[in-house]
Design a protein around this nucleic acid. Structure first.
Lengths: 346, 346
DNA sequence: CTGAAAGCGCTAACAA
DNA sequence: TTGTTAGCGCTTTCAG
């Protein structure tokens, strides 16, 4: 019924070991033999069974992606980046939504382990402590994409949120804006923390007192944000820096409803940079950074980590140099960002 | 190092067969034994190896999703739906972007076959002829989500595009609009064909001549659409029906730039119904239909088809009745739609 | 350069 | 109700 390596071996009059070598591009096969085998493979339309291969070799060429919600625009752009390099390296991707639930997250990790994925990319918010311990116990390479590990034990790919936040805050301070509001989603998330930290740094530098009322927490989606502008007005902000594009968009719509002029009366700039930004009127200014690339680079790094771990386990020598592009104990990689003024900033 | 079924068997003083039975909830195990085994499993933190299981049982509890582009809003919403029911049924999801390329598509199918997925969900445009033959040769259950099979051999989940198009066209004709334009993406795609067909049907009914100039082809994304309004103006359309939300949004922005009043001078209604529609000003009218559910239902149907095929292969009797919700030779399922007027139609 | 053979961890008859 | 055993299809030493 199904063609196996054994059928190919028989037809090509070689052992299955040789067929295996041909399939895996092992150089120790005579050219003539190789061609003979290849012909048979083509004739029989043989496709190696990846499951059997995974069982025998303990490598599945599959990586797992955990993320809160695939239908989130930023997430799916990152996944697209992951997919594109996964494809180059012949890896498959298995995807699971954690729905922001750390119990589900744990189940996902379990399922990934049972499926014997070669590595995991964790997208989205910061991982819960329990999930982290769980993952560390699994001995599977993990890369965080677009989120940080406080303890700096896991690899992570991001932009330098602190620097970005510092840069943008500084720029507004230089333009004599004093009331700069930050609309973020989760106070405890590492990402938000770094953004606040960069913001404070700039404030310090300009000897402006930090006012915690300017930090508006708890807004992430368009829907949730229908009342943010009120809060912004309450604190009399001149500039608002949003962590998420949908929030920025919502604020803009609210200004339109209330007849507030943007950017004249209120300037808005977003941190997230999804393709949504290009689809609004006015066009929203942003901290430009490549969400797609964060995914792509994460996947590239992951393949390296997988290779290194494999070498380690075999006791082979391996090239730590491979990962020299990573900073901060060799765990973090920052992609470049820049401030892009569109129509919501002066 | 890794805990196997054998370790559990030894510790629990049973055979691995019994452990296997416990793990698979086979009822033929004495309660006492079952508990003993379960205790050992917990104590040893045993997790079954899904790869080995897949090899032995030829069931991987993994399904593959092929789609043109995961970062497309509609796609990711459908994937979200698939994921949510896949999760309920304990299936994992492998994802791959076809990038609209039928060569890549073929590679993906190959890779899915090699990974021994239990089924495939095909998202997006209609499958190329060659891909279809390929898939049919693979003997893996396939469900189309949000796209159609001309030959009606593959299962597919959609809304009734023809009816929806008919409904909306009719409604405008009743309101005495004559010039109704259709902005679609691909002339040959089944979906576009059905939309056109419903449109024509309504026209016929109202004895309005079909004018092919009113069908504007080749627009799908926001970016691509920056010149559509010109075309719409050239044909002097009063109403424009778009296949994709991004196009509708682009048209609206263009009307704003040109000072054309919507819906007074031009009415716009979109077919796609992504969450983008809720994030615009004015809010775009649409053929409301549940993209998420199309994914969810596809997955549900797929599990049934998988079960039926399995039963067939075993020569067991099976319940075709399971699929009675499907129409049209038992292959198609239509989800309900309705017309929702927001702010871009009168 | 090639082959033989021992698994990888599990399921599924078949026996008992 | 439980155990024995033969694979699933492939990789990977180890010999030769």
């Amino acid at each position: 019924m199904t063609i196996t390596i054994y059928d190919v071996a028989r037809e090509a009059k070689v052992s299955m070991a040789t067929v295996s070598r041909v399939v895996n591009n092992n150089p120790n096969v005579k050219e003539a033999t190789r061609n003979r085998v290849k012909d048979v493979i083509k004739r029989l339309k043989y496709t190696p069974n990846a499951v059997a291969r995974g069982l025998a070799s303990k490598k599945t060429t599959t990586i797992g992606i955990v993320l809160p919600d695939i239908s989130d625009l930023a997430s799916s752009e990152s996944v697209s980046g992951i997919e594109s390099v996964a494809n180059m390296y012949k890896y498959n991707i298995i995807l699971a939504n954690s729905c922001h639930d750390s119990e589900i997250e744990k189940e996902i990790f379990n399922s990934f382990m049972s499926k014997q994925v070669d590595g995991i990319i964790y997208l989205g918010h910061s991982m819960s402590e329990s999930s982290k311990r769980y993952v560390e116990g699994m001995n599977i390479p993990v890369v965080l994409a677009g989120n940080l590990d406080m303890d700096n034990k896991l690899y992570s790919i991001n932009i330098d949120y602190e620097k970005a936040s510092y840069d943008v805050t500084k720029e507004f301070l230089e333009k004599k804006r004093k009331k700069i509001s930050l609309v973020i989603s989760s106070f405890e998330s590492q990402k938000a923390q770094r953004i606040i930290s960069g913001y404070k740094k700039a404030l310090d530098e300009f000897k402006v007192d930090f006012d915690s009322k300017l930090i508006i927490d708890g807004y992430k989606t368009y829907k949730e944000s229908s009342q943010v502008l009120k809060k912004i007005q309450q604190v009399k902000a001149e500039v608002v820096l949003t962590m998420f594009d949908e929030v920025a968009l919502s604020i803009i719509h609210q200004t339109q409803d209330l007849g507030i002029e943007v950017p004249k009366e209120l300037e808005i700039i977003s941190f997230e940079n999804t393709k949504l930004l290009a689809m609004t009127r006015p066009k929203i200014s942003s901290i430009f950074h490549p969400i797609f690339d964060i995914g792509a680079v994460s996947m590239r790094i992951l393949t390296k980590v997988i290779d290194i771990e494999k070498a380690k386990n075999k006791g082979e020598e391996y090239n730590e140099e491979e990962l020299t592009e990573l900073d901060n104990n060799g765990r973090e990689l920052y992609l470049p960002h820049r401030i892009v003024h569109r129509q919501t900033t002066k």
